[in-house]
Amino acid sequence: MIIEARDIYKSFKAVHAVNGISLSIAEGQFVALLGPNGAGKTTLVEMIEGIQQPDKGEILIAGKKWKGNEDALHHIIGLSLQETYFIDKLTVHETLCLFASFYDERKTRVAEVIDLIGLEEKKKSYVVNLSGGQRQRLTLGIALLNHPKVLILDEPTTGLDPNARREIWKILLELKKKSNTSLLLTTHYMEEAEQLCDYIIIMDKGSILKEGSVTQLLNKEKGSKTIEFELEGIYETIAPAETLPGIFWDNKTQKGSFQLFDMGKDMQAFLHILEENNLRIKNLECRRKSLDDLFTSLTGRHLHE
């Protein structure tokens, strides 16, 4: 195991940011921490990165504790923080050279990385003039300079448009193919977790709700289909029904959904609810269950709230 965290706790005054989390990551494994804002993702990864100290629990990177091994561990970890600004008026090339010198890497490595992140054309541009996606690629490039054994990325694609996001995914998938680097990635985009990672940890309010591979998570429960529906008229809530547990109504989007476990029984229960409450269907859709649905059925909230 390249990363081992055992029973980690961290509080800020009244907030239990991380509340007893354990995780382990094998060499070459890509792991996603999926959770909404405030779930405790940043706090957890910053403890793994040695930036914050846990109140309780033990963290081992490549079998070593942080204390006394800072220099050695910094050499094998590459990371990007949730938000960092670099020096505005340095060029992409100068910024990479600066960080390369910390790792004793040479100019040839800088050239390789520029190629890897596709910023050849922007090499001489000031950091301040890069687009959001280009800046995130630079951030990723800096994290990759030292051929890290462990790559830890905190929300690398938040705020990017779908194209820019896919550019980043491409770089990471390439890395997965060609190296034995492990990845720990935080995100609140389920597609990102599904696309990139072998193992997904869903977390909320400082705890792990569920974890496993994508197939495990989506098939563990029988219901792998989701029904999504819209109604005529506008509703705050629709009456809770004991007959159909997990039915969920989002009054903001005016959409409802439920997991389909048993086609006959569940559909019957759904129609019964409609009839009883005098509701009329405007639109109905059946699709494969997603991690978003899983999160919703676990917490009663959406990932993006």
């Binding site: 990165e49 040695g50 930036i51 220099d71 910094h74 050499h75 970890i77 990371l79 923080l81 938000e83 960092t84 600004y85 670099f86 020096i87 960080f99 910390f102 790792y103 030292n146």
Partner: peptide
């Protein structure tokens, strides 16, 4: 304040 210090000391600098 821009977390650049934090980023730099997360390297062997």
């Amino acid at each position: 304040s821009k977390k650049f210090l934090r980023r730099m000391v997360s390297t062997p600098m």
